[in-house]
Simulated scan of single mutants.
Amino acid sequence: MEELLGRIIAGKVTDENEQDYFVQVDGTTFRLDKAEIEKPLKLGSVFKGFAYENEGHDLQMTRNAPQVQVDHYGFGTVVRTQRTLGVFVNIGLPNKDVVVSLDDLPDMMELWPQQGDRLLIALREDAKQRLWGVLADGEVYQAIAQPAKKHMQNANVIATAYQLKLVGTRVMTDHYELGFIHPSERETEPRLGEELHARVIGVREDGTLNLSLRPRTYEAIDDDAAMLYAALQHSEDGHLDFSDKSDPEAIKAYFGISKGQFKRAIGHLLKDRQITQHDGQLWLVSAEAKTDTPSTED
């Protein structure tokens, strides 16, 4: 059965029952589900299809060949993980998921792909005729990559993490541009295969992208301002003992943001007449007072 599994091969239809045809290739018999066949096959005819071993350990052929094959790379979706084995990937077969070995995954299990993540893989057949998923390396990504355009500066992109390094995360966008995320441009390290919503902060001369997972400044202001406003709403009498002169460490401990972010959030809410600031405190503006000019005394 050498060099049969994980490939498109041709064989002779030798038998059938109510549910299956049986196709023989070099003395090895594969079953073929009749539900796939629109017109009946004749005994002795030649059938070409993708060969594999299904979850029941039966040899099977299918006319619906997946993109992922031996020496052919394609994206598959992670369906589950098994700590002692690796991750199971759906490549489009009806009754077979392919395992990417834990030996090929990050040392830290929290960086393993999770259900729904995508991996670019090919297949390999081991000495026991078992099919395994093989992760694409950097050369494969380079081979299929498209150069980024200069007009992509500041654009939003969706990308998949394919290489995790101490120096940063390498990704490929949905349009096949290659990108890099420096550790300073993320809050946490992405998982292998994780789909990321990023923004372009640089287009390099070699056609690759520098990306950030951090929000734009105005987006961060909106989020921080919303958080500050909610804190005031939940305070006992609509005020907090903070101002733009408060200690940075006290601000960080209470709100979890830097003093710079805090001051921008205050400015945003003052401009929108949501709050006032006086006597070293922040106050909610009552609904009746929102048409008045807010106080901005320090």
Rank of each mutant, 00 (worst) to 15 (best):
K290T: 13
Y21E: 00
F88Q: 11
N95I: 04
S243D: 08
F50W: 08
V79S: 09
I91L: 03
R214P: 06
I221D: 03
T62L: 00
L43V: 11
E205Y: 09
E189L: 14
F30Y: 01
G256H: 04
F22I: 07
S246C: 10
E53C: 13
I37N: 02
G133K: 01
H72D: 12
V157E: 10
E185G: 07
A148R: 01
G74P: 07
L178Q: 08
S101W: 11
G133V: 06
K39T: 15
L192E: 01
K252D: 14
G260L: 14
P183M: 08
G6R: 06
H239G: 12
H182T: 13
N210D: 15
L209A: 09
L111R: 10
R170K: 12
V89T: 05
G76Q: 01
M109Y: 11
L41S: 04
S212I: 09
L164E: 05
R31G: 02
Q261M: 11
Q281A: 09
K149H: 12
R273M: 05
R130I: 04
R204M: 13
H278Y: 14
R80Y: 09
R191F: 06
R7F: 07
L105K: 08
I181E: 00
D15V: 04
D15A: 10
L209C: 10
G116R: 05
K290R: 14
T14H: 06
H175D: 15
D247R: 08
G133N: 03
A51T: 06
Q82E: 14
D107E: 15
Q60A: 14
N90Y: 07
N95V: 02
T28Q: 00
G11H: 00
N95Q: 06
A143N: 08
Q233F: 10
T160N: 11
I257W: 07
K128I: 04
D298P: 10
P66T: 06
K42Q: 15
G56F: 11
R186W: 04
G6M: 05
R273A: 06
M61I: 10
Y52D: 05
L123K: 00
Q115S: 13
A289C: 07
D58Y: 08
K42F: 11
P294Q: 02
Q24N: 08
V89L: 00
L269W: 01
